[in-house]
């Protein structure tokens, strides 16, 4: 197990390094002169040179990458090329919206998908079972942003139960209002994500239901549902966890769209705005953070798999 964690950690570091290279390279594609954008049309060549120097744009690419990476290693993602604000600080602030949104949506999606998926598997030959999986199938097909718009129409516009858009200016210092404004976004994201998870939970549970050891558990005196609960869930957790690792990326993408639909001041909205402003350093930092989160979750999933399964624990690869 230690061998595995050490190796996997080394791979994670390598992956993060590669990701930083890719993020850096991807953003060098952006055309436009950040110095010109910052200086405005009135800047003369000398001022532009000064700005370029200040932003480090007059140095070689390798040097730029090295100094950026050096900053990143110290937790400094650089400064905005447009207004000079610290990227790290701004991300931290926006995460106060995106973090609760994503985590709550994930929790809600799991809370719905696991019991429904298990039920659909247990009753897969009945109307209830096929009904649940059909609804899941439909749910996967619905675009997140459309679900968001429909929910707004029903709950905010027609019923006027919840705010349609926005987030209180005071942020979490107005906790009730902040929470209320996150309800619809969370539900939107959870519905899209939950439909995907439901499908995988169902197929993992169905697979486990057909396994011999479940029959052994039933032969020992468990009911079908009891055996699935007691032995099946742990066995189904492996494949579902793998899917969860992959779905984190989808969840973050979903957050970008949902924040836009509900006009939430989160990381997603920030990213969309920064790409639009061609703010290279900010986008670079944001992309790296998103990718790092996905990679780190992948690492955690791999370790969790081994904690669950003693057979995996004994192999290093």
């Amino acid at each position: 197990m230690t061998v595995f964690v050490v190796r996997r950690l080394a791979l994670l570091v390598l992956a993060l390094f590669l990701a930083s290279l890719l993020a850096f390279a991807l953003l060098r594609l952006l055309p436009g002169d950040a110095a010109a954008a910052r200086g405005g049309i009135t800047a003369d060549p000398a001022q532009l040179r000064a700005i370029r120097h200040e932003l480090g744009l007059d140095r070689s690419l390798a040097e730029q990458y090295r100094s950026w990476l050096g900053g990143v290693l110290h937790g400094d993602l650089g400064r905005s090329q447009l207004n000079g604000t610290s990227v790290t600080a701004e991300l931290g602030e926006k995460l106060r919206v995106t973090g609760p949104l994503v985590l709550a949506a994930l929790a809600l999606a799991l809370a719905g998908a696991v019991p429904l998926g298990v039920l659909a598997a247990l009753r897969h030959r009945t109307r209830l079972g096929t009904g649940i999986s059909t609804v899941g199938q439909l749910g996967i097909a619905l675009p997140t942003l459309w679900v968001g718009l429909l929910l707004v129409t029903v709950f905010a516009v027609e019923a006027r139960l919840l705010p349609a858009q926005g987030f209180p200016v005071e942020g979490w210092s107005a906790p009730g209002e902040a929470a209320r404004s996150l309800v619809l976004p969370v539900v939107t994201l959870a519905l899209s994500e939950g439909a995907v998870l439901l499908r995988f939970v169902r197929s993992a549970a169905l697979d486990v239901l057909g396994r011999d050891f479940l029959r052994t558990a039933r032969a020992s005196g468990r009911t079908r549902a009891g055996a699935l609960w007691r032995h099946g869930l742990r066995n189904a957790a492996g494949p579902v966890l793998s899917v969860l690792g992959v779905q984190v990326a989808a969840l973050l993408v979903g957050a970008v769209v949902v924040e836009k639909v509900f006009a939430l001041p989160g990381v997603g909205s920030m990213l969309v705005a920064d790409v639009g402003n061609r703010d290279m350093v900010k986008v670079q930092g944001e992309v790296l953070v998103v990718v790092a989160v996905v990679l780190a979750v992948g690492f955690l999933v791999d370790v969790a798999q081994r904690l669950i399964d003693p057979r995996l624990r004994e192999t290093a690869s």
């Binding site: 390598l14 992956a15 590669l18 890719l22 991807l26 953003l27 992959v246 790409v275 998103v290």
Partner: peptide, 17 residues
């Protein structure tokens, strides 16, 4: 290894850039 890294770049972000 490369596949594992690229997989972490969400398509929507790449497409936006």
């Amino acid at each position: 290894q490369l596949v594992d890294v690229v997989i972490a770049f969400p398509a929507l972000l790449t497409a936006m850039i």
